[in-house]
Design a protein around this nucleic acid. Sequence first.
DNA 1: ATTAGCACTCAATAAGAGAGAGTGCTAACA
DNA 2: TGTTAGCACTCTCTCTTATTGAGTGCTAAT
Lengths: 341, 341
Amino acid sequence: MTLDERKKIILESIIRDYVETAEPVGSRAVVKKHGLKISAATVRNEMSDLEDMGYLEQPYTSAGRIPSQKGFRYYVDCMMEQENLNDKETKVLLQLLDDSFQEMDELVQKIGHFLAQITKYTSFVIVPSVRMSKFKYLQLIPIEPGKALVLLVTNLGVVMHRNIEVPESITAQELGLIGRLFNQVLAGKKIEEIQRSDLQQLRDEMRQRRQVIDRALEAIESLLEDSNEKRVIISGALNIMNEPEFKDVDKLKKILAFLEGETQLMDMLPESVGDEVDIRIGQENQAEDFKEMSLVFAGYETRGDQGKMGLMGPVRMEYWKAAGSLDSVREIIEEIIRKRF
Amino acid sequence: MTLDERKKIILESIIRDYVETAEPVGSRAVVKKHGLKISAATVRNEMSDLEDMGYLEQPYTSAGRIPSQKGFRYYVDCMMEQENLNDKETKVLLQLLDDSFQEMDELVQKIGHFLAQITKYTSFVIVPSVRMSKFKYLQLIPIEPGKALVLLVTNLGVVMHRNIEVPESITAQELGLIGRLFNQVLAGKKIEEIQRSDLQQLRDEMRQRRQVIDRALEAIESLLEDSNEKRVIISGALNIMNEPEFKDVDKLKKILAFLEGETQLMDMLPESVGDEVDIRIGQENQAEDFKEMSLVFAGYETRGDQGKMGLMGPVRMEYWKAAGSLDSVREIIEEIIRKRF
DNA sequence: ATTAGCACTCAATAAGAGAGAGTGCTAACA
DNA sequence: TGTTAGCACTCTCTCTTATTGAGTGCTAAT
């Protein structure tokens, strides 16, 4: 389905206007705004056509028109030009990331903040799963009699730790030895591929310290579970409150509650995101409480798992800016990740 | 200033009613609710007196009365009986804390959740500062050529880590040695008391590795800064949305924005909290954006620094429940902390 | 195909009319 | 002297009823 040039101009004009003002747009406004050489009556006819085609709708007889979700979809698919970060914004981002950050989590936090701030929408960033990164180093550190610390470092620099109980009789040397053996066995393995069976031989060799090995493995498993849960970082949630469509507290509550249950957001996203920025408009979203929101998201590649990031706003959203920002940010941070990790 | 018995009953009755319904309370309602043996007219006279004294106010001529902030203050100071956790709630809490938690942060997170859930208010918990805990263990772990990990464990089990750069030439043995020397020098010292000068001798002895020692110190310092920033954990912020006084989005926004800037909340609290649960009603709060909220908070003692926790809600708040819950929770977690740390 | 003109529609706002809850005052009463 | 019944009065809330104005859809002329 393709529209003739004039209809496109009118549709775009209405979308731009509506996104800006959140008010229905009338035929006169369309003519004035774009200084069109045609009369309001002509525009009215065209608008009527566009409504019949489903791209516009009328809140009530004889109000102006607002773009339907189908209208936004058409615009996004066939007409929209992304608006990437401008020089100033890019500079801000680079400066932000220039300060040394310690690990992925910190980087990702900063990205989230930046996106929310620049677009005035709500951002989310999903930290690439530790599961996909590679085992680099493990150490068992005696803390006090009967207690030790399992320390795990991956190729992405993520450090995780957990306390375990060990027999009081065990010596620092022994713990050190066990750690080194772990390292030998697991070196370079993907974290998610670590299996108890990998350590079967080790377990057999060290009969009397089998318990410690098991505890360490349990610790690793529980670390992975924990780091799975906390993978979504949301910024600028309060920006939603500035949108007139959410001046109603009950609507607002639904959205914020939805965001609080972070897994719900994750569940809406596809397993893996392609090269393009992806857009979900209103009803296209699965979750019932999210059908008045739009979602713009993209993936970013890391050594290991793919990360995801995105922006959320009302259906009346500046898709061009959101998509463009994500695209620019992706490029910049993929570059940084390549260098750093 | 003390009130006669009947005025007290009437004040309490109005407070209880108003807290429950958020509506002005009339004289008839007071009589009915408490099955008083006096007439509505008499109550009206008493209410008029209470208004003159400043404990009640009228939204407009010939509406019912609502308690003034001064009224709440009087009630809280002179009449209120705390309502501690009941058996069921206590059981829930104990069960929640029964699962092994790894560190203070996790414990505190759970407490926060619990408080918010049980009271339907917004909770905050301030994690005791790492500064006050004691140095227990430090290790320098070689990660890859030119990079090492500084690992710091305190007596409260807090583990912090940070990457530093080291000369490529340095060996694992050397790093281990430096770590051990750090341990000797710093053993048992309060974290906040660690000074560069403590390590002067060490620096002198190890001329050619001075740089590594400096880097490690810098890492420790930056760790402390980081852990200072993130000390407030807020739960149940969305509960505020259920209060009718915040059905207006702008008011809501102010409060939520206030909570987002976590230091603002911390700045309102006294340095150190006494034995009693403390209550700040409405205007008594310093912060401009918080003058329509009330704050109920208490300290909890740990080995080292004092932690704080509290509940926030509208002025029309169930102070008895909030204060009682905090008191009970304090008792329970201080017990746990004594055992665990 | 385009446009000017005009009647028509419907939300938003304002103004007015009860209704109802609750008070304050007065006068009677224990 | 404290308590109470009775009643007029006040003020919000809600429900109607105009009024306004933006914007459309249709018709007829260009």
